[in-house]
Simulated scan of single mutants.
Amino acid sequence: MKAIIIDDEKRARHLLLQLIKQYCPQIHQTEEAPDLASGVELIKKTQPELVFLDIEMPNQSGLDILDYFEESIDFKIIFVTAYNQYAIEAFKISAIDYLLKPIDTQELQSAVLKAQEAIEASNLTQQFDKLRASLQQISINKIALEIPKGIMFASHEDIIYFEADGMYTNVQLKNGKTKIICKPLKHFVAQLEENAMFFKCHRSYLINLKYVDELIKEDGDFLLMNNHKRIPISRSKKEQFITIVKETFL
């Protein structure tokens, strides 16, 4: 971790620095600032994970640190002060811990450990957020299929149709393979309702319109897919399908 000590007393900064070097190996880099304004400038320049902050300093209280940041802060704060009356105010701004001078080494170690755990949890959350954003981008063109041995990501372009099979769904792919998914058809209908290429032509089928070759009106109504599969189309859906075709092509 990188840390900054903000304290107007040079001796107090030096003492805390020596304790950190001796008892807190998680902190590999430490810098100092003699007042809040220069401390904030140093924070913005070096981007530390942890700030040790005195409260009663000339000109301005350490409790005012949030006034210098327009957005939420991405570093953790441990207040280090000779006065215990500020504890409630300190924790109101989400301080990790509150240490009283003279500093007890065990309390220092405990506070730094809390900070380390909070930083790791925050980093993990950020990683999840990045992964979520990436997968949301992928979902624009792909769909996740939960197959028995894991999760398969299939492009919308590679799916010819979905076929209901009780509480399961058979997914017919362009490469000729069929995947059995442990989810009902309605799951995929809901997931792809905003995708205009997929059309629920029957209670048991969700098709990719790209792969429809022909509408056949014999022995019931069918859609002939380009893999030669005949898929039934219900009466109400047939009228909807014909209307769309006429609006688009005729």
Rank of each mutant, 00 (worst) to 15 (best):
E107Y: 10
L108C: 10
Q109Y: 03
Q109F: 04
S110I: 10
A111L: 06
A111M: 03
V112G: 02
L113G: 03
L113R: 12
Q116Y: 12
E120W: 02
S122F: 14
S122I: 03
S122D: 14
S122P: 02
S122A: 15
Q126Y: 08
Q127R: 11
Q127V: 09
F128E: 06
F128M: 10
F128V: 12
F128A: 07
D129G: 00
L131Q: 10
S134G: 06
S134M: 14
S134D: 10
S139K: 06
I140A: 09
I140S: 06
N141L: 01
N141A: 01
N141F: 00
K142D: 02
I143P: 06
I143E: 00
I143S: 08
A144W: 05
A144T: 06
A144K: 01
I147E: 07
I147K: 08
I147W: 05
I147M: 09
I147H: 06
P148L: 04
G150W: 02
I151Q: 08
I151F: 08
I151S: 07
I151R: 12
I151V: 15
M152H: 12
M152E: 13
F153M: 11
F153I: 10
A154W: 05
E157M: 02
E157A: 04
E157T: 04
D158A: 07
D158C: 00
I160V: 13
I160C: 05
F162A: 07
E163Y: 01
E163N: 05
E163A: 11
E163K: 12
E163R: 13
E163C: 04
A164P: 06
G166N: 06
